[in-house]
Amino acid sequence: MTERIPYVVVGAGAMGLATTWQLARRGHRVVALERFERGHTRGASHGATRNFNNAYAAAHYLDLLTLARTEWDELSRVTGEPLLRLHGLVTHGDDAVVAGVHDALVARGERAEVLAAPDAARRWSGMRFTGDALFTPEAGVVRAAAALEALERGARRHAADVRFGHRVVALDEGGDGVTLTVEAGDERHDLVAETVVVTAGAWSRGILPPSFPLPRLTVTEESPAHFTPIAADPVWPSFNHLLPPERYPANVYGMPTPGEGVKVGFHLVGPVVDPDARSFRPVPAQAAQLRGYVAEWFPGLDPDSAEPISCTYTSTDSQDFILDRRGRIVVGAGFSGHGFKFTPAVGAVLADLATDDTARAAAPFRLL
């Protein structure tokens, strides 16, 4: 017999689990289907930490970040798991951007301080600065692995059904619902949902119907690395380094990760890949560039200590997220590279879209 369910979430990484939690805590019956096993490393949600980076000037991201902070705190209260570590964020490398972000944050009542390069170097001796540095103390990291566990626990506490090892192989919208064909082990069965939320990351295009107006999503394999601090006592903030394109392949981000070192990575430089046929290894030339960057800019790190990490980015051309609905299908996509910090807020927006067909996300997140 075909199972009928009000809400089905396809993809139970960070965004899918957040949407499942938000739907379940509102009293809705929801099933989340995840193709892989719990804690897998094939997508973009694994790993110990992500930057909780508030260095944005655009209102739609700052609005989403405000909601995210509230929802992270709520999830922490519900599960008893502290999920944010707010040791502060330093953004530097482009004085005009630093000033613009500072002004946008201060206008919203956020704490933000601009330091001259010598003052920044004295405060963070493991880093080198040549221009102004913006310090935002109410930023830091999200404990990413702990967040996934908390979201799943929170969702299950409200009777959500999260099914790992369940792959959606077909999705067809009809007049009375959306039919999903699901493979689990050696068996195949159908579910019919009133509304489906697709949060499948790199696999989104392959799941959605061909007619769905999804913009181009580019999947890349990125290879940041953890580097070992030379001294045991330097203070490490999270950081954004805005770099000149004539010298470096991209801007740099990073954060301290207890027990693993300091994570450093170029943003969006990896090769385009098939998510089912990745090497899980860094491109040698890019690894060499990253080593050279660390040697130049981080006197507090051993540049020869790199422990590479492999993850995917799934990005729109604009690098803005997709949060929208067509018919009975809601889509959340294009988060990779800067989405994790917004996770519970994205879940709230997608839950709004799923339960209210008049709801709308901010204009830059909508489908054309």
Rank of each mutant, 00 (worst) to 15 (best):
Ala250Met: 10
Asn251Leu: 15
Asn251Ser: 15
Val252Glu: 05
Tyr253Gln: 15
Gly254Asn: 13
Met255Lys: 14
Met255Trp: 14
Met255Glu: 15
Pro256Phe: 02
Pro256Ala: 07
Thr257Glu: 11
Thr257Arg: 00
Pro258Asp: 02
Pro258His: 00
Pro258Phe: 01
Pro258Thr: 00
Gly259Asn: 00
Gly259Leu: 00
Val262Ser: 12
Lys263Ala: 12
Gly265Trp: 08
Gly265Met: 07
Gly265His: 05
His267Ile: 14
His267Leu: 13
His267Pro: 13
Val269Thr: 15
Gly270His: 01
Gly270Ile: 02
Gly270Glu: 01
Gly270Gln: 02
Val272Trp: 01
Val272Ile: 12
Val273Pro: 03
Val273Met: 02
Asp274Phe: 08
Asp274Ala: 10
Asp274His: 08
Asp274Asn: 11
Pro275Ile: 10
Asp276Gly: 13
Asp276Asn: 10
Ala277Phe: 11
Ala277Pro: 08
Arg278His: 03
Ser279Ile: 02
Arg281Met: 12
Arg281Leu: 15
Pro282Ile: 04
Ala285Cys: 05
Ala287Trp: 10
Ala287Gln: 15
Ala287Lys: 11
Ala287Met: 12
Gln289Ile: 12
Gln289Glu: 15
Leu290Trp: 09
Gly292Phe: 10
Tyr293Ala: 07
Val294Glu: 07
Ala295Ser: 09
Ala295Lys: 06
Ala295Asp: 08
Ala295His: 04
Ala295Leu: 09
Ala295Tyr: 08
Glu296Gln: 14
Glu296Arg: 15
Glu296Ser: 12
Glu296His: 10
Phe298Arg: 06
Phe298Cys: 07
Pro299Phe: 01
Gly300Cys: 09
Leu301Lys: 10
Pro303Arg: 07
Asp304Ile: 11
Asp304Trp: 08
Ala306Gly: 08
Ala306Glu: 09
Glu307Gly: 01
Pro308Ile: 13
Pro308Met: 13
Ile309Leu: 14
Ile309Arg: 06
Ser310Gly: 10
Ser310Leu: 12
Ser310Thr: 14
Ser310Phe: 11
Ser310Asn: 11
Cys311Arg: 01
Cys311Thr: 04
Cys311Asn: 03
Cys311Lys: 01
Tyr313Trp: 03
Thr314Tyr: 10
Thr314Pro: 08
Ser315Ala: 15
Thr316Gln: 10
Thr316Lys: 13
Asp317Cys: 13
Ser318Asn: 14
Ser318Met: 13
Gln319Val: 14
Phe321Gly: 02
Ile322Trp: 05
Ile322Lys: 01
Leu323Met: 05
Arg325Gly: 05
Arg325Ala: 04
Arg326Pro: 06
Arg326Ser: 12
Arg326Asn: 10
Gly327Ser: 14
Gly327Lys: 11
Arg328Phe: 11
Ile329Leu: 13
Ile329Phe: 08
Val330Met: 00
Val330Gly: 00
Gly332Asp: 00
Gly332Lys: 01
Ala333Cys: 02
Ala333Lys: 01
Gly334Cys: 07
Gly334Pro: 07
Phe335Asp: 02
Phe335Thr: 05
Ser336Gly: 15
Ser336His: 06
Gly337Arg: 09
Gly337His: 09
Gly339Asp: 04
Phe340Asn: 03
Phe340Lys: 03
Lys341Gln: 14
Phe342Asp: 07
Phe342Asn: 06
Thr343Gln: 00
Pro344Asn: 03
Pro344Ile: 06
Pro344Glu: 04
Ala345Pro: 05
Gly347Met: 02
Val349Asp: 04
Val349Ile: 11
Val349Pro: 03
Leu350Thr: 00
Leu350Ser: 00
Ala351Asp: 01
Asp352Leu: 00
Leu353Cys: 01
